[in-house]
Design a binder for these strands. Sequence first.
RNA 1: GCCGAUGUGGCUCAGGGGUAGAGCAGCGCACUCGUAAUGCGCAGGCCGGGGGUUCGAAUCCCCCCAUCGGCUCCA
Length: 640
Amino acid sequence: MDENNKIKVTLPDGGVREYPAGIALMDIAKDISPRLAREALVAKVNGQLTDLARPLERDAAVAFLTFEDEEGKQVYRHSTAHVMAQACQKLFPGVKFAIGPAIADGFYYDFDTTEPFTTDDLGVIEKEMEAIIKADLPFERFEYTRPDALDLFGKAGQDYKVELIEDLPVDAPLSVYRQGDFTDLCMGPHVPSTGRLKSVKLLNVAGAYWRGSEKNKMLQRIYGTSFPKKSMLDEYLFRIEEAKRRDHRKLGAELELFSIQDEGPGFPFFHPKGMILRNELEKFWREEHAKRGYSEIRTPIILSRSLWERSGHWDHYRENMYFTKIDEGDYAVKPMNCPGGIIVYKSKLHSYRELPIRMAELGLVHRHELSGALHGMMRVRCFTQDDAHIYMLPSQVKDEIIGVINLDEDIYKVFGFPYHVELSTKPEKAMGSDEIWEMATNALRDALETRGIDYKVNEGDGAFYGPKIDFHLRDTLGRTWQCGTIQLDFVMPEIFDLNYVGEDGQKHRPVMIHRTIFGSLERFIGILTEHFAGAFPAWLAPVQARVIPITGRHAAYAQEVTDSLSGKGIRVEIDTRNEKINYKIREAQAQKIPYMLVVGDKEAENKTVAVRQRAKGDLGAMPLADFEAMLLEEISTKSY
RNA sequence: GCCGAUGUGGCUCAGGGGUAGAGCAGCGCACUCGUAAUGCGCAGGCCGGGGGUUCGAAUCCCCCCAUCGGCUCCA
C-alpha cells in the first residue's frame, strides 16, 4: 500500500475525514478528540468490531465504541476475562484454559485445574489482576495458520484450545491474542491494553461442564464483572443486594405466603395468605378460560405403569418420575397431565362437529428434579400446571395456536410484566418421524410469524412428543423462567389411537396441543412476588385493607368499618393491639397491605376513614362509602 | 447429580476447645397515643443430623441432610 494514498473515513455523525492509508484506528480517535482516544475501547469498521491498534487501509465507515455501547462493554468484560486467565496462569501453573466470554453484566472463564478454586482464591486472583492492569500490557493480535495454532497450543498442553481449533472450519482464519506472557486463542477484539480496565470484582466460583454437557469433565468457572469506574461497580453490587430483597423466597416467608421446609425439599407449603393469592389467580384463570370455550377436568395423580409405558413416559421420562406399588400392581405418580386427559377424551366417541375440544386441568404433577436444581418456588418437585389439551382437526391447528398465543398475551397483560418467546425444536430423545416434527415445527413458526411475534429458536429443546413455543418470564436477578408453553403434538394421538368421526362417517386422527399459560401456579406466583416486590395489586393482595384505630377508645368504630368492608367482600383486618399508630402503620406497610384506614375521634364522628395508600401515603379522610366504592373498582378492574 | 459456599432461638446476626449472646418478633405490665419502631420486665436454643478426636466439642476431623450461587435439566 502506497504511503501517500489517502483514505476517506466516514464517522457515525456523517462527517468524512481523510487520513493516510494504514493509519491506526487509535490515531484516528486521537485526531478526533483526546477524550475519545481515552474512552474508546474498540472500533467498528464497516460494522466489524476491530482492535484500535489495527491499521485502516481503505475507505471505511468507522465508529468508536466506549463502555457506554453494549458491544464496547462486552469487549471490556471479555478483555477482563483474559486478564483473569493471565492471573490464573501465574498463580496456578499448569492450569488449562477453556472459554472465557462476556455475559450480561460481566464475564466468566472456565479453567481446568487440579484443585478446585475456593472462594478464598478469588481475592488472590483479584490482586494479581490488579498488578496486570497496573502493568498496562498491550493486547497484541497475531494471525495463525491452523497447523501453527495447533502446534502452539498443543505444545503448551492447552487441550481445550486444541479441541476448539479442530472444530473450526479448516479455512477459518485464526487469531491469537497476547498480553504479557499470556497467549490465548481468541477472535477478539480487545481493548488496547490492560490498563484500560479499572474496577474488577470476582463474584463467585462454580463448576461448569466443558461445552455444557454433563458427559464432559467439570471445569472450574469464575464469574466476575468489571467497570471503568469504582462507583459503577459499587452501584452494580448495590443493585444486586437490592434485588435480593425482592427475592420471592424471602418475601414468601415475610408475607406468610408460602415456604419450603427441610421436611419436603422441593415440595412447597402454601400458607393462608398464599392460598388467597393462589385462589384469586385460579378464579381469574377459570373466568378467562370459560370465556374462550374451555371445559375443565381433573385427573388422578397416580395412574398405572401400563399407561406410562404406552404414553412413552416410561421410556423417555422415567428418571424424572416417582413410582409406587398398589396391591400387586405398579403405578407412577403423574409427571404430566396429558395421558390422564387423553383417557377422558377417549371415554366417548367424538364428532368432527365438536372439535376443537379445549379441555383444561389444574393438574398437580410430581417430577424428580435434581437436588441441585431446586430453587424456591421457581423449580420444585411438585407443582400445579394450568394445563389444557386441545383436540382439533388438522385444519384448525393454526387458529388454535394463535388463540393460545392471544390468551397468553391477554393474561400476561393483566400483570404487566415483560416476557420473551422461544421456539424449541426436536430433541435427541424424541418420538415420531422427522417429517411429523418438521410439519409441527413449521405450524408453530407459521403461527408466530402470522402474529408478528419476535422469537428465538432453541434447537433441540422441545418436549419428547413435539416442538413447542415457550414464554419466558424474568425474575428479579434477571434469570428467565419458562412459564407459558404451547406444544404441538402429532405423536400422542397416534399412540393412544385417538380419533373423531368425520363428515364422511370414517374415523380420523385429531391433532393435539398441550399448553399452559401460568406454566405452574408455583413458579408463576414466584415470578409475581418478585415482579411486584410483594406489593400485589389489590385484587391479589391477601389483605386488601387494614383498619387501624388510634386508641382503644376507637375500637368500636373500627370494628364497624371492618364489618362494613368485610360485608362487601373486601379482605380486611383490624389492628386493635395496644400500640402506637406509627408502629401499626409501619407494620402494615411492611406487610405491603394496599390500604390502611386510620380511625380516630374525627372519623368516628363523621363516619369517615383516613386513607393511607401503601405507595402514595396519606390520602386524607373520605366517607367510608366512597372508599369502599373506590377499592371495589380497583379490585374489579385488576389495576396495578 | 456435579463444583463452591453456608447452616447458632420465629427473623437478622455475634461467639470459634471450658459447656451460649444481642437486636427485632412473641408474652406480661405501664403509657391511650393522628400516618414507618413508647418504656420496663419475662420467656425462648440438646448451636442442621450422625459418628469420631479430646478430661471436655457449637467450636477440630469424617459422613450425611438442607439451603444459597452456578453447571446440567426443566413448568
